[in-house]
Amino acid sequence: MSLLEKEVPGVVMTPDNIRSKKLPWAVDLGVAVVALIVAAAVVLGLGLGNWVLVVVVGIVFYLAGMFAAATRVEGRRSARNRLWKTLIYAACILAILPLASVVWTLVSKGAARLDGEFFGTSMNNIGARDPNGGAYHAIIGTLEQVGLATLMAVPLGVLGAIYLVEYGRGKFALTVRFFVDVMTGIPSIVAGLFILAFWVLIVSPWFNNGTPRFSGFAASLALTVLMLPTIVRSTEEMLRLVPGPLREGAYALGVPQWKTIVKVVLPTALPGIVTGVMLAVARAAGETAPVLLVAGGAAAINFDPFAGNQSSLALYVYQQAGDASRFAPERAWTAALTLVALVLILTIAAKLLARRNRLT
């Protein structure tokens, strides 16, 4: 008698019964079809709701039927495993559905004005009955404002996180961490009001013969205030994930702490830091209130972020969505699609730059 045929506590182990039974996929599919049919009969027959409720009730019936069939064929333990696996897949699908819906809506409605005129002209001298006009001025404003905000927020945020992780001890570090946490939840309009009261009304008159001036740079300052807490918190968490032995090995070789941070810690945490930075950039690019308060918005192209009103894609979407012109909704959808595509391109480019996981 071979080892497979050896009798163990009254059971003969053979090649046929050492493998657990599996529920055929056809049965699984059949249970799903029957569950949807029964759900449609119950919901639509009793007039309880529409097809959305049919799908929800059908999922409940499917889970119950699948659990009963799997318990009979595979056993109760395997049936529970199959049930929870199905629930996890369903949760994943439910999480993806809103994102897929948003992307589909943006692409389907925003493709109408994807032309050269939209990306090459502004809204200057465009009337309510004019089908022309584009978002060139808004694209320029978004790139300049978010670019300046990134140049200011990233060094400050990364250095602040390095201080909290590597040097910060005592009450001062706790105070900094507390205010960073508080700033994470402030509304964007508060940041805009702060820059309006400080920069536009107090500082800008010094450079403009006593007259307050809106500018794209003021919008960049407001976006910097919004980006800083996100960058600090995400960078801090990434730096804390760097293994301690990496630092200890560098210290054992006589490497100074600042050089260890630059050559070892930051390159190791770089992919996570880039992710946090891009999250902050995405938030800044989609803000409307700060730009409206301190940049004013403009229909014409303004390449100078330090002087004069300037628009942005988010503000352009807001203005076009509330415009009475029948051509405005198409411009708003295309501008929203452009904004999402711009953030996606910047994120992919940043990920590719950080892919090698080291500073160059």
Rank of each mutant, 00 (worst) to 15 (best):
S2R: 15
L3Y: 15
L4V: 12
V8K: 11
G10N: 13
V12H: 11
V12N: 10
M13F: 12
I18H: 10
I18S: 08
S20P: 06
K22P: 00
A26V: 11
A26H: 11
V27G: 06
V31Q: 04
V33R: 08
A35I: 05
A41K: 08
V42W: 07
V42Q: 02
G47Y: 13
V55I: 15
V55S: 11
G58Q: 01
V60N: 09
Y62H: 13
A68W: 13
A69Y: 09
R76Y: 13
R76E: 14
A79I: 08
R80Q: 12
W84R: 14
A91P: 05
C92E: 15
L94W: 11
P98Y: 11
V102S: 14
V102D: 13
V103D: 09
W104Y: 10
W104Q: 07
L106Q: 08
V107C: 01
K109S: 09
D115H: 10
D115R: 08
F118G: 03
G120W: 08
S122Y: 01
P131V: 04
P131A: 06
N132H: 11
Y136D: 03
G141N: 09
G141H: 06
G141D: 07
L143E: 01
Q145A: 10
V146A: 09
G147W: 00
A149N: 11
T150N: 09
V154T: 11
G157P: 02
V158S: 03
G160K: 00
A161R: 00
Y167M: 07
G168S: 05
R169C: 01
G170V: 02
G170Q: 02
V180I: 15
M183P: 02
T184P: 00
I189L: 10
G192T: 03
F194V: 13
F194E: 01
F198N: 02
V200A: 01
S204Y: 01
P212F: 07
S215E: 03
S215C: 02
L221R: 01
T224M: 08
R240G: 07
R240H: 14
L241Q: 15
V242D: 09
V242Q: 11
T260R: 02
V264Q: 02
P267N: 05
P267T: 05
L270P: 00
I273N: 01
I273W: 03
M278K: 04
A280W: 04
V281T: 12
V281P: 00
V281C: 10
A282S: 15
R283S: 08
A285I: 04
P290K: 03
G296R: 03
I301Q: 07
I301P: 01
N302H: 09
A307N: 13
G308S: 08
N309E: 13
S312H: 06
L313N: 03
R326M: 12
A328F: 05
A336G: 14
L342W: 06
L344D: 12
L344T: 15
L346C: 11
A349V: 14
A350M: 14
L352T: 10
R356Y: 06
N357V: 10
L359N: 11
